[in-house]
Design a protein around this nucleic acid. Structure first.
Length: 462
RNA sequence: UCCGGAAUAGCUCAGUCGGUAGAGCAGGCGGCUGUUAACCGCCGGGUCGGGGGUUCGAGUCCCUCUUCCGGAGCCA
């Protein structure tokens, strides 16, 4: 007889029948004559109450000493629970202790701090909150794939290791097989990088965008969805050294269409996940971020505000607010400015578009004014910038000029430039920080708690 | 990296004016109970993050290092 998942058992129409469940004890309450075991198996937030009577084989020796953390397999009957607090319970016929847990089991029945849980990343997925986070994360990943697949986007597997020496998105991790103690030297005594594994310097990717553009110009609609790496010394609640990014790239698409794409993407996903993860999101609404459900529902149902960069600066200037960083036309919007726009002025998601060229990347499409580029950022309350994207510069000569102006070596990007010589078309794409998306969904304050094994400066345990 | 805060029992925290430490939970023992992060009683448990200094005396004040948290910058 096969075991069943608690999620499925709780969803049954009625009690009855023999079942086998396997999982871990969230708590064990030993009463006179019987024990109540709260069993969880990760399939859902709810546990299943197992009632073990004292006449069971091995009751005193095996069941009575059970405590939080132990793994058990239970065979018994699914019955209507006579107690309050649960609809069904399992009347045990046999409880097999698969893996006991000693009194030094670090997880307790009560709340732990997230800081402490980070030090036990091998056990924290068993907690209610982290368990829910990882279920929501999984559902979000699958919903993202589904959303793109339904619209004819091809999942393009962009490389993790790259030899583009700069993509303008931050410091990169070096990938090398050279002996750092005694690297091979050229006649001048410099490290001979031609002797390295790829015959040239290589790094972990900071973005799949440039390769995704290749895909857009062959398959029309593609997306990259995988890990990316930044070696920035960022110590904040919304930065990781290793994080996942979703990067759709679409041909024959300009800025307006890109904003539509980003907005419908976010709103559709919110709507879908509100349904799919109702139980887990309710837990976040109750315990982590009161008002979360209302906020997500609003995002799913209301159009996003859109404002050009110039207007955004005017709004900030007129706000009467004193900002730590001055609001100035031509300067990038700071975190406090972005927060003011989406949290106070518009009170919801905002798309800011057409930024000054000087503060944006070389590959963004230059407007006719020669001063702004067709870039857009989606700002959401609580998290800030969640999406950044742009229409790409598809005109060869304009791109070449921009690269030179930005101090980049066109040789390195020969293939990127060549795409602009053979069948170049307007195209556009955006990047969504997957962990920030999960943060937004769950209301979790620290990005380290929405990825199973966070990598940040000074920490790569587990 | 910069600014601010924190580090006390296994965990979550309190500790007043500088006079060598407490609670709840967890653990052990006992009791009670179709229980609900059960409840009641008793017990054990601490190099107060490391190093240095001031002082008769430092968990408490000062310096320094480490780690963590919050904010900023960089960004997603």
């Amino acid at each position: 007889m096969a075991s069943e998942r608690i999620r499925d058992l709780l969803a049954r129409e009625r009690a009855g029948g023999e079942v086998i469940v396997e999982g871990w004890l969230r708590t064990a309450r030993h009463a006179k004559g019987r024990s109540f075991l709260d069993l969880v198996d990760g399939s859902c937030g709810s546990g299943l109450q197992v009632v073990a009577e004292e006449d069971l084989a091995g009751y005193e020796q095996e069941i009575r000493p059970l405590r939080t953390g132990a793994a058990v397999r239970v065979r018994g009957e699914l019955v209507d629970s006579p107690g309050r607090g649960q609809r069904y319970e399992v009347r045990a016929r046999e409880v097999e202790v698969v893996g006991p847990a000693g009194p030094d089991y670090p997880l307790q029945k009560k709340r732990h701090s997230f800081e402490f849980l980070r030090t036990i990343a091998h056990l924290r997925p068993r907690t209610n909150t982290l368990g829910a986070v990882f279920r929501v994360r999984n559902a979000a990943a699958m919903a993202i794939h589904q959303w793109f697949q339904e619209r004819g986007f091809l999942w393009l597997h962009t490389p993790i290791i790259t030899t583009s020496d700069a993509e303008g998105a931050g410091e990169m991790f070096r990938v090398t097989t050279l002996d750092l103690g005694e690297p091979p030297r050229d006649p001048e005594g410099r490290v001979d990088e031609r002797a390295d594994f790829f015959g040239r310097p290589a790094h972990l990717t900071v973005s799949g965008q440039l390769e995704a553009e290749i895909g857009a110009l062959s398959h029309g609609r593609v997306y990259a969805f995988g890990p990316t790496f930044r070696a920035e010394n960022s110590n904040t609640a919304r930065h990781l050294a290793e994080f996942w990014m979703v990067e759709p790239e679409m041909a024959f698409l300009e800025l307006d269409g890109l904003m539509d794409l980003a907005e419908s993407f976010l709103r559709d996903l919110m709507g879908r996940l509100l349904e799919e993860c109702a139980e887990d999101l309710a837990l976040f609404d109750q315990r982590i971020a009161p008002g979360l459900l209302a906020r997500l529902e609003e995002v799913a149902s209301k159009p996003f505000a859109r404002v050009a960069y110039g207007e955004a600066v005017e709004i900030l200037a007129r706000s009467g607010r004193r900002f730590e960083h001055e609001v100035a036309l031509g300067a990038d919007l700071k975190t406090e400015h972005e927060r003011h726009l989406c949290e106070e002025h518009f009170r919801g998601p905002v798309i800011v578009h057409d930024y000054p060229a000087a503060i944006k990347a070389f590959y963004m499409y230059l407007n006719d004014d020669g001063r702004t580029v067709r870039a857009m950022d989606v700002l959401v309350p609580g998290v800030g910038e969640i999406i950044g994207g742009s229409q790409r510069e598809h005109r060869h000569d304009v791109l070449l000029d921009r690269m030179r102006a930005c101090g980049l070596d066109p040789e390195t990007y020969w293939w990127y430039l060549e795409l602009r010589r053979f069948g170049s078309v307007p195209h556009a794409g955006f990047g969504l920080g997957f962990e920030r998306f999960v943060q937004y969904l769950t209301g979790m304050a620290n990005i380290r708690d929405v990825i199973p094994f966070p990598r940040v400066p000074g920490f790569a345990e587990f």
